[in-house]
Amino acid sequence: MTYDGSDGQPVRALENINFSMSQEDIVTVLGPSGCGKSTLLNIIAGFLSPTAGHVLIDGREITGPGQDRGMVFQHGALFEWLTVGENISFGPRMAGVEAQKCAEKVEELLGLVGLNGFRDTPIYNLSGGMQQRVALARCLANNPDVILMDEPLGALDALTREKMQTLVLKLWQETRKMVFVITHSVEEAIFLGSRLVVMAPRPGHIVKEFQLPFAAAGRDANPREIKSSREFIAVREEVLEMIWSMEEQLSPAGV
């Protein structure tokens, strides 16, 4: 993926990104800012078309956005003029699904994300964590094959974030969907990812891929326990080491 930068020089945003996901995967992507992880997500979502290469789902090439790939954004993507229920049923309603079926779907998803009784609440009366629950439910309402999350928990406070991580794992295990999560948090990346992809900038490329056991265990176990386990800490230190050495190469003077 190459595009023209602000100074007219072509910028090589991504190079040699080569990987595949299967139904069982929850993939987290980690890397310093400017490593092209958002560009990668936008290409998979279909909002950008790559200058070279292609993305395939079930062998079909992606040419634009579609219902098979649900999106969860960090912030600002909910429709604040609609209630919780109307947000969740947005996809089915646009597709012309009958009201009765929409209502059933909404009730089912409200239960799944833990928002029972909030169907008629306006979005602006919800806390940040609850808004992200709505965003997750809204994307699930369309029954996508893949869920793409762009820093989904980045705007939440630390406590809410931990709770939401468990919810993400629960949804992943119950719906058996492919999940692709971009995050800034090393801990989150290791905890959520059954596979963790570490990317480096200039141009964006994959440096290392991990297969991790924590996501599979994370739903039922105590997240604090997992995160303080020796195995978890070992991976965390390794990843932090990589990220730090990248940062040092980028700005040797340090800040």
């Binding site: 909002f47 579609g66 219902q67 999106m71 954004f73 600002g76 429709f79 003029w81």
Partner: peptide, 29 residues
């Protein structure tokens, strides 16, 4: 309009006309 709203609507399968009516117009109110 936040581009996230437009992108979310496309990903939810809305057509251009639906995005104009249900997202852009209401967002501009």
């Amino acid at each position: 309009v936040a581009i996230e709203k437009i992108h979310a609507a496309y990903s939810l399968g809305a057509s251009r006309w639906q995005i104009l009516r249900h997202v852009i117009l209401i967002n501009a109110l």
